[in-house]
């Protein structure tokens, strides 16, 4: 039996895509389908994302995992040809409902990108940007404090505390990525989406970010897209495996790496495809 035939046969997700207790569910995604013009990037995805958990999305390139991630804070709205169908509920409220304010949604669901993208401003202004937008600091001293806490939480404070007014672009790649995480934390979101946050970093910087994710999950719901199976197994509680736009398997991370139920998942994590 070829992989394609197996895929056709087992198109619905195996494992445990939905969670039992409604309290623990942050996002519940139902029948999600995404089209870019003619091309369908995501097919019929049903998935719950647990609160204060790290959920890893893995799968070969072009499998739709980044597209799925960008549905969660409606970043796909920027792309004119992109059409999203189905339902995405955040705390039981549909984020694609017409009355939803996208700007407010993105303040609740922050995002860290594949390539570090600090603004060409000072380190301080990068962190202060979000809080200033949303009026989260009443006084300059409150803002200073917020900047410091955010940088501390991102584990960057010790390195940059004397360089706060230097341009952010002068930092190294790993520092820039932690700066972007600090920038996201600064607006106190509920969810942090991470799109391959370590793919442009060396192993040492990667280890620091992974440790940071471990600390952050006490307060935030984290969804991380990654190409590294080791990373998924190190940082995540649940793992979802995407293939050709379909969600093939979702399970607790230990389970999916030790005993995958879907043969496609097994092929991928043992390195036979992707």
């Amino acid at each position: 039996m070829t992989t394609v035939e197996r895929d056709n046969e087992l198109s619905s997700t195996v494992g445990k895509p939905l969670l039992d207790g409604a309290d623990d569910v942050k996002f519940s995604v139902r029948k999600l389908a995404v089209h870019y013009a003619e091309l369908q990037a995501v097919h019929d995805v049903n998935l719950d994302i647990g609160q204060r958990q790290v959920t890893a999305l893995i799968g070969p390139s072009g499998c739709g995992k980044s597209t799925f991630l960008r549905c969660l804070n409606r970043m796909n709205d920027i792309i004119a040809s992109c059409v999203v169908q189905g339902e995405v509920h955040l705390d039981q409220k549909d984020i694609y409902a017409p009355q939803v304010d996208v700007v407010a949604l993105r303040a609740r669901v922050g995002m860290v990108f594949q390539k570090p993208n600090p603004f060409p401003k000072s380190i301080y202004d990068n962190i202060a940007y979000g809080p200033r937008l949303h009026g989260q600091a009443d006084s300059p001293s409150a803002l200073d404090e917020l900047v410091e806490t955010s940088l501390r939480r991102a584990g960057l404070w010790a390195e940059v505390k004397d360089l706060l007014h230097r341009p952010a672009t002068s930092l190294s790649g790993g520092q820039q990525q932690r700066l972007c995480i600090a920038r996201t934390i600064a607006i106190q979101p509920e969810v942090i989406l991470m799109d391959e946050p370590c793919s442009a970093l060396d192993p040492i910087a990667t280890a620091r970010i992974e440790a940071l994710i471990g600390e952050l999950k006490c307060d935030y719901t984290i969804v991380i897209v990654t190409h590294s199976m080791q990373q998924a197994s190190r940082v995540s509680d649940r793992t979802a495996y995407f293939h050709l736009g379909r969600l093939l398997e979702v399970n607790a991370t230990d389970k999916i790496f030790m005993a995958p139920e879907h043969p496609g998942t097994e092929d991928y994590i043992t390195g036979r495809i992707g």
């Binding site: 700007v103 390539k115 979000g130 937008l133």
Partner: peptide, 14 residues
């Protein structure tokens, strides 16, 4: 770069 735009939008900028 588009990444700067996305970064700002993802922080909840209009």
């Amino acid at each position: 770069p588009a990444s700067l735009r996305e970064g700002a939008l993802a922080l909840g900028a209009t």
